[in-house]
Design a protein around this nucleic acid. Structure first.
Lengths: 350, 350
DNA sequence: GCCGTTGATGCACACGAGTGCAATTCACCA
DNA sequence: TGGTGAATTGCACTCGTGTGCATCAACGGC
């Protein structure tokens, strides 16, 4: 019953040959038993399964990948885990990959320009594809991936690369929804707090915001754009100081933040340091709808991204391209929705 | 200059043989060039490197793993990405693994009892080890890992498995610190809000809390333990209702929550639904010190876990056991620290 | 009873790399 | 000049698996 035929050798991995020996069949039969669609008689299959069970045999996926020249490893490149938005996208991503028999190899590109190194490392693992949630690959690397038929999908990033698919939220529309919401609340002195390191999504959100503001064209509307010095809560804090430390009649009364996290910082400072009420004196709209956005302290009105949809679409595109590598690039844009809680309300509203 | 010798074949991966051909050396020479410590002349190395560079050669790590019978894949098993504490541990984990040339294979065990399946799957990848941030393996699987010399390290979990290392925070001490802090603030009617699905860490925190409370032994101190119905913000919300919906003189004035997230929910309800001030009427202490704990809205006094330390220690233990598989199990306990912000203060304090 | 067809099985090769061993080169010293 | 040693190099084997091809048995139709 014991598996330790070799006593205490350095490695006890059970191979297909071991199973074959025990089942009294050829190694090929074992291989075929574990290969869906191969030709094996019911009798052999049962013998093999019994032996495999008894020995605790598991197919060596690495060896299989070698012979099939196709691994089921998929690289996931993130840059830091600081963003609270990341887990929301990671969870469905992993589960979707798992559903398709793919395994996520996690890579952290600390700095945005380090994506290059991560992507290069991934090639050593002969990944079946790569999903980028951050950063954009340098063009020659994108070409190398394309030449090697290793599909790349970028989430919420834009880069016009041949053969690289993009899946993202409708950032423009999100910005527009935010503008409409704030204007409807009666806000007239609007501001947009963007993240630093000009991200594409950040710019798009701002553009959508401005555009909608102009379209609605309410009289006496002013607009101001500022860029936070950090992409996180602290960035919202300092942005708030810059935005609110001025005479009351010059202060914005409606602020759209590029991120819920920025909005948290801004709201806290508005309330704490400046004694404003939010909602009430100041209307705030965020972006992402991370879990904390529904916390009572913030009751954040925000633009929700369909993280599950993004992940599913990304994996779908990846798999499609694995099967047909020379597909033209596609850029999917998924709808966003306005989640109205309370932070967008103004006391003076009509 | 083009790599496409075979025009548009299905696969363009460059192999060591290609490099050897181009450099005019044997395949062994190529292999040795990329194997640290192997014997290659400077001249050959340069020829190989030049050819490799020109062709864009990358060692196939999967093939290398096969021949060396030792992969550098390490399984990381999490259960869901819901906990905001997770990113804090994931980030240093990935970076520490990377530093040692190991690559993280991410597995999501949605339900706690699904860890078994994840661990079993990992064996197919011949992982060099596994790190569990959640759930405990069934005993026979732990034995299988041990027999195969695949080290397993559990973070913040306890299970007395032969050959399985454990790295965790000093939860007892954390609970004690919380109790001391609340008592020092003048709280006398204490409560502990635990997570559901009795986790080891949750029980330990409660035990440490009680123990310290008894040791300090202030007169007229009462204690109450309740279990949230969910481990997240919403769990804190419902726990707060159960705890506070009673005559004022029976309400706790100092609450310790097993998690910052629970504490957020509790604070919001205390303020919103019951009109209490926190700090002021109610003192609250959390656990973890996740990024949002420092938000102005909460200014959460909390017990900080050394996530970086946990990750580094976990990887260190993993690597040690990779080199010496039959080491006795070790259980590391890392210190926690009290981070005093404002949520623990009471207006009535002396 | 013979032959063609179908299905199962095993042999042998391949995937891409590391490495022991023997052969070769080269320098250096006596 | 011959011998000794070290340093390099290439051959060939190996890791664990998938799979084309040939073989073989069984079976059914004539």
């Amino acid at each position: 019953m014991t598996v330790d035929d070799t006593a205490n050798g350095p490695s006890h991995w059970v191979t297909a040959a071991d199973v074959a020996r025990r089942a009294g069949v050829s190694r090929s039969a074992v291989s075929r038993t574990f290969t869906p669609g191969a030709s094996v008689s019911q009798e052999t299959r049962e013998k093999v399964m019994a032996a495999a069970e008894a020995l605790g045999y598991r197919v060596n996926i690495l060896a299989r990948s070698m012979i099939q020249r196709q691994s089921n490893l998929v690289g996931i490149v993130v840059s830091g885990f600081a963003s609270p938005f990341l887990p929301g996208i990671l969870a469905p991503l992993v589960s979707e990959l798992d559903r398709r028999g793919l395994a996520p190899l996690l890579m952290d590109a600390r700095r945005a320009d380090n994506v290059e190194e991560s992507l290069r490392d991934l090639l050593s693992y002969r990944v079946a594809g790569a999903i980028l949630t951050s950063g954009t690959p340098p063009i020659e690397l994108a070409e190398e991936y394309s030449r090697l038929h290793v599909p790349v999908v970028m989430i919420n990033r834009i880069g016009d690369f041949e053969g690289v698919d993009t899946v993202g939220s409708d950032n423009r529309r999100g910005g527009a929804l935010a503008a409409e919401c704030l204007l409807a609340s009666g806000a007239r002195r609007l501001a947009y707090v963007n993240r630093p390191t000009g991200t594409h999504s950040g710019r798009e959100r701002g553009a959508g915001f401005c555009e909608a503001m102009a379209l609605v064209g309410a009289a006496g509307v002013s607009f101001e754009l500022i860029e936070a010095d950090r992409p996180d809560y602290e960035g919202g804090v300092t942005a708030a100081r810059r935005l609110l430390d001025r005479p009351a009649n010059l202060r914005p009364d409606g602020v759209f933040c590029s991120t819920d996290e920025l909005a948290f910082g801004l709201m806290d400072v508005a309330r704490g340091a400046f004694g404003l009420t939010v909602p009430g004196d100041l209307a705030v709209v965020g972006f992402d709808d991370i879990p904390m956005a529904r916390a009572g302290a913030y009751a954040m009105t925000t633009i929700r991204q369909d993280t599950t949809g993004l992940a599913q679409r990304a994996v779908a595109r990846l798999v499609e391209r694995m099967e047909a590598p020379s597909l033209p690039s596609r850029a999917d844009v998924l709808p966003v929705t306005l989640v109205e809680r309370r932070s967008h309300l103004l006391a003076s509203a009509g």
